[in-house]
Amino acid sequence: MGLSGFFRRRRSVLPGFGLTLGLTLLYLSLIVLIPLSATFLKASTAGWSAFWHTVTEPRALASYRVTFGAAFIGALVNALMGLVVAWVLVRYHFPGRRMLDALVDLPFALPTAVAGITLTTLLSAHGWIGRYLEPLGIKAAFSPLGIVIALTFIGLPFVVRTVQPVLQALDPELEEGAASLGAGRWQTFRRVIAPELWPALLTGFALAFARAVGEYGSVVFISGNMPMRTEITPLLIITKLEQYDYAGATAIGVVMLVISFAMLLSINMLHWWSGKRYA
């Protein structure tokens, strides 16, 4: 119980603080912290110039462009559509609403590999959707568009689930007040509702973007994996591993880790800004 003596013990009548905190730290260290630190250590053994050379070679740069570009567009689509979906699910009543509401979490629960092969099949030249796009000259599978679609799919729940509770908690008196002051519906939305939704919308966008940047399973089937064109960064890591280029894989892995940490930090600051955690 040494830890508990060190910390201020406010609710000291409950047992097990030292033990549970100790176990938590031990488990996190073994499973998360030590492996992550080992990766940074490994990257540092290669030397700075080799590291810099690997992470800035044209193929790596192209993969960043594809990954971040597609993730950004996907998150943007989700921000817009997520707002509409959340609005409709909270404000309107129509048949099938509850089922759709429950289904929004499907991308959380469906394994990414399943999503990947399904979207590929749907969008390929003979698929349910692809067959209508092909005559229009739109190639959805094995193209950057396919990557955007896959990343939109896996990021779909984030915006809906961050905006929904805020919309639900919005006091109707705000809108009634605005209307009683003579504001039109659109003015009310723009000047009264939108400012309340901004933090949640931005948080949802950031979460969807962060998830999309690291995504692998749903993209690898649909992208076609052409270096310089449709190769995402996680795939580049796997390719390097398969070629036994461990130093290269580590270097790019470290770049992705640093980006993850930066996004985690900014999302936490968004939470702090909006005053509540996404749960």
Partner: peptide
């Protein structure tokens, strides 16, 4: 501590595998 617990969520799955390769793989620690 809560942020640390969330950490695996924000790490790319591929990197999650990679860190164990770098720890226990033939080229690892």
């Amino acid at each position: 501590l809560i942020t640390l617990i969330d950490l695996p969520f924000s790490v790319s799955p591929v990197v999650s595998g990679l860190i164990y390769v770098l720890l226990f793989g033939l080229q690892g620690w």
